[in-house]
Amino acid sequence: MFEYITSLNDHNLPYPDTIHPIVVHFVIAMVLFSFFCDVVGYFTGKTHLFEVGWWNMFVATIAIFVAVIFGQFEAGLAQPYDLAKSVLNMHTLLGWSLSGIIAAITAWRYVIRTRNPQKLPIYYLAAGLLLTLIVGFQVYLGDELVWVYGLHTVPVVEAVKDGMS
């Protein structure tokens, strides 16, 4: 069992595949769905959707910290080559920033919910739109790391092991 934990596979990971993307997709979906529910609830008057938005943000706040921890661990094992380093650094910085931003927006949402769960200020929706845009940019960076630079893909891991920098 310990040899499985301490040895790295052909993806340069101690487990079968990357966990960060799995967890982070939950965060992405929950943040976007929360914003969607809030906007629909605001403009249609269906305030029960605010409760759906709240719980999605609450769970996203917990999940983003799990995503960041696995992302940090997997980034450390990625052994990025020079071209990928700047994108990985930006993705890392934005990931840590998003964990704080999402936590702050969720805390704000909690205060709004305790004061009046049937109302949502337009400023909160504006913050949700900004958060959605930031998440979109973060998704772009993550996609670039996988689909352009190939981090944790077998050919890139092999090339790095063979001396590519």
Rank of each mutant, 00 (worst) to 15 (best):
I101K: 00
T106N: 09
P21C: 09
V139S: 01
Q72G: 15
G45D: 09
F58C: 05
H91D: 08
H11T: 10
K46G: 00
L88V: 07
I122N: 04
D10M: 12
H48T: 12
A63M: 15
W147R: 15
L129V: 10
L145N: 00
L141T: 10
C37D: 11
A159V: 04
A159F: 00
A78R: 09
R115W: 06
K161Q: 07
D143K: 10
M30L: 15
L125M: 14
F26G: 15
T92M: 07
G136Y: 00
A60I: 11
T47L: 00
A63P: 08
D17T: 15
I19P: 07
P16K: 04
S165R: 14
L120F: 02
L130W: 09
Q138I: 09
I19A: 14
I101D: 00
I112W: 06
S99L: 11
F137L: 14
F33Q: 01
F58Q: 10
T114E: 14
L93G: 07
P14R: 04
F36D: 04
V39I: 13
T114Y: 02
N116V: 04
V59A: 14
V160R: 04
V135S: 00
L88M: 11
S99W: 10
G53Q: 10
Y140G: 03
V160S: 05
A107E: 05
G100V: 09
N56C: 14
V154A: 03
P155Y: 05
F2C: 00
T44K: 03
V111K: 13
S165V: 15
P21D: 11
K46P: 01
P14D: 07
G95Q: 01
A103G: 08
Y81T: 11
P21F: 08
V157M: 00
F33V: 12
V148E: 10
N9V: 06
G128P: 08
T18L: 10
A104P: 04
K85G: 05
L129E: 04
L130C: 04
Y4H: 03
E51G: 12
Y15F: 12
V68P: 06
I64L: 09
L125I: 15
G53I: 11
S165E: 13
D10K: 11
S99K: 08
H20K: 13
L77K: 11
G128R: 03
V160W: 03
V39L: 07
W55N: 05
M30N: 09
H152V: 02
T18F: 01
N12E: 09
V135G: 02
L125C: 10
V160E: 02
V111A: 09
P117A: 12
V87T: 15
L131E: 08
D17V: 15
L120T: 13
I134R: 05
N89A: 15
F73R: 08
Y123M: 12
K161D: 02
V59M: 08
L151S: 03
P21M: 06
T47W: 02
V68I: 15
I64E: 06
N56A: 05
F70E: 14
L83W: 01
V148F: 00
D17M: 14
Q118P: 00
